[in-house]
């Protein structure tokens, strides 16, 4: 009993006690709360819930609803930015600090290009395409401490984030994925096991075209010439020396991009992945090839 090890002490105590069996175990006292309330001092009362209605029935109305009044948030007709808020694309945030953290913890391999699949695989980020989540918004929290040279593809990024990544000699692309592709990226194993052929990635909807074709946001549909011009512009604006990608030893990795129709790195649309036999089925039929190439 002289031990000051907690577990050791507990286990030594057990040695001198009767055998732990079905008959002599019990839960901690106070574990179970009686759901009923007795007839005490306020036994016949309403238990603080008031009489009838919302209070008693625990009927919480949706946020902003004013029981039939024209709600406050709709009274100002000029607040047009609320229009269609429930239909808009959402990008759940992921900060540069968190990105650095998963790199430090070896959850992310920075010798390979990073995309949403590898970030979700790390277990530190999750999103639900059915809640209109369209991927990662890389935020600038921790931009000062970020120190990794990476080739990353996210769905939304601000100028500061782009600058923070390019300052370290890295490359960032913003790319659009339709919800169906995002399901595949979230759980590729489940998709491969389903035995379906990898579909094509869809093009962005009209209101997203501008973002994904502009060089300023490093869109995946932007002109590479424009992007390299903008890299220089951003370096001058934020005052850092731009790394020359061509001289980099990891030039090939840094230049690896997906095709606008491609969902996974290195795997083309139309292929079927067989995880059990470790083989890939590639379509030979010209009709199929034409379909997946379009």
């Amino acid at each position: 009993m002289g031990s000051r090890q907690i577990t050791e002490k507990a286990l030594t105590m057990l040695r001198s006690l009767p055998r732990v069996s079905l008959g002599n175990i019990r839960d901690n006292p106070g574990y179970k709360k009686n759901p009923k309330r007795g007839r005490g001092q306020h036994g016949g009362d309403k238990h603080g819930a008031g009489n009838k209605g919302s209070g008693q029935r625990q009927n919480y109305m949706r946020l902003g609803y004013e029981t039939g009044n024209n709600p406050f948030y709709l009274r100002m007709p000029h607040e047009h930015y609320y229009k269609g808020h429930h239909l808009r694309r959402q990008y759940p945030p992921f900060s540069l600090h968190e990105l650095q953290l998963i790199i430090d913890k070896d959850r992310l391999d920075i010798s390979k290009p990073i995309d949403i699949a590898s970030i979700v695989k790390s277990g530190m980020y999750n999103f639900t395409p059915d809640e209109k989540h369209f991927g990662i918004n890389l935020t600038d929290v921790g931009a000062d401490c970020f120190a990794a040279k990476i080739n990353i593809e996210v769905q939304w990024a601000s100028e500061q984030v782009i600058a923070a990544i390019e300052k370290m000699g890295g490359v960032i692309t913003t790319a659009y994925y339709d919800p169906h592709s995002l399901y595949l990226l979230r759980d590729p194993k489940k998709f491969f096991e389903s035995g379906q052929s990898i579909p094509r990635r869809m093009i962005p909807p009209p209101d997203a075209i501008e973002y994904y074709t502009s060089a300023k946001s490093r869109g995946y549909l932007a002109d590479p010439e424009e992007i390299s011009k903008d890299r220089l512009r951003l370096a001058q604006k934020y005052g850092y020396e731009l790394h020359v990608l061509e001289d980099d030893p990891n030039y090939e990795m840094l230049c690896e991009r997906k095709d606008p129709r491609q969902i996974f790195y290195g795997l083309e649309p139309g292929w079927v992945i067989n995880l059990k036999d470790q083989c890939i089925l590639k379509p030979k039929d010209s009709e199929l090839q034409r379909f997946f190439a379009s």
Binding site: L11, L14, V20, L22, I25, R26, D27, Y31
Partner: peptide
């Protein structure tokens, strides 16, 4: 391994399992 064979004997957890 102590994590498996030398863990704190939580009788309450054993009870809830039963």
């Amino acid at each position: 391994h102590p994590t498996v064979y030398g863990a704190t004997p939580r009788i309450d957890i054993i009870h809830r399992n039963v």
